[in-house]
Simulated assay, not measured.
Amino acid sequence: MKTFTLKSIAAGLLLSASSFAFAADIDMNADANDLAIKGFDPVAYFTMDKAVNGSPDYTATYKGAIYQFSSESHRDMFRANPAKYAPQYGGYCAFGVAMEKKFDTDPNAWKIIADKLYLNLNKDVQKRWAQDTTAYIEQSDSNWFDIKNKTVAELSEAE
């Protein structure tokens, strides 16, 4: 069994941090075209219990990021209550936010806890995060207020 330390995970996360761009709002993780969650349907995580690709035929904008949906009904559910379905921490890696960093995410590394969607960088990081989600969520909630309006570069400079 592989063992991951915070230091080794942080090093791996830093390598991937520069691989994504930002939406109009700095607190949102989106690609160069402002697409959130790499085009995956945020409502499907809740209604279908799986990661599902969205379609450019069904979109909605929230906090400057564009979300895609697999159906018109999912888009309408999101529009009615975007805060319910949008991923926590602007779609940045929940584990990374616990470490005061903003890292991209893999839409397949996800978990719903207390009716909130959390994404992680990848499945390995998600395994580490899952070892104590309660503590990591508490730490991320605390950190998010301070880092949500900082860029990835600003957070890297703080090291």
Rank of each mutant, 00 (worst) to 15 (best):
E154F: 06
D31P: 00
I112E: 10
N143A: 09
P56R: 03
L121E: 09
Q88Y: 06
K148F: 10
E138M: 09
A109P: 02
K111E: 11
A11C: 01
S18M: 13
P42A: 01
N81P: 10
G96C: 00
A114P: 02
D27Q: 12
G90E: 07
Q68L: 11
S142H: 15
N81F: 06
D25W: 08
I137L: 08
G12H: 12
K148V: 11
Q88C: 14
L6A: 15
T5M: 03
G54I: 08
V97H: 03
Q139H: 02
A94H: 01
A17E: 14
V125N: 02
V52W: 00
A17I: 13
A21S: 12
A80W: 06
D115L: 11
K2M: 13
K101F: 10
F46L: 07
V43T: 07
A44G: 07
E72G: 11
E72A: 11
E138G: 13
A86I: 06
A83Q: 12
E72W: 13
E159D: 12
D41Q: 11
K7C: 09
G91E: 07
Q131I: 04
I9D: 00
F95A: 10
S18N: 14
K101I: 10
F46D: 02
R79S: 15
Q88K: 10
P42F: 08
L13A: 02
Y58K: 10
A30Y: 04
Y85D: 13
D34I: 04
F95H: 06
F69I: 07
Y136S: 03
Y45F: 14
E138P: 02
N33L: 07
K101G: 00
P82K: 09
F145C: 07
A98P: 00
M48N: 11
S70D: 13
T3P: 07
M1T: 12
I147D: 05
I26F: 04
F95G: 06
S73C: 10
L119D: 02
N81A: 14
D25I: 04
A65G: 04
F95R: 02
F69S: 03
T3Y: 14
S142A: 14
A94C: 01
A24G: 06
F69M: 05
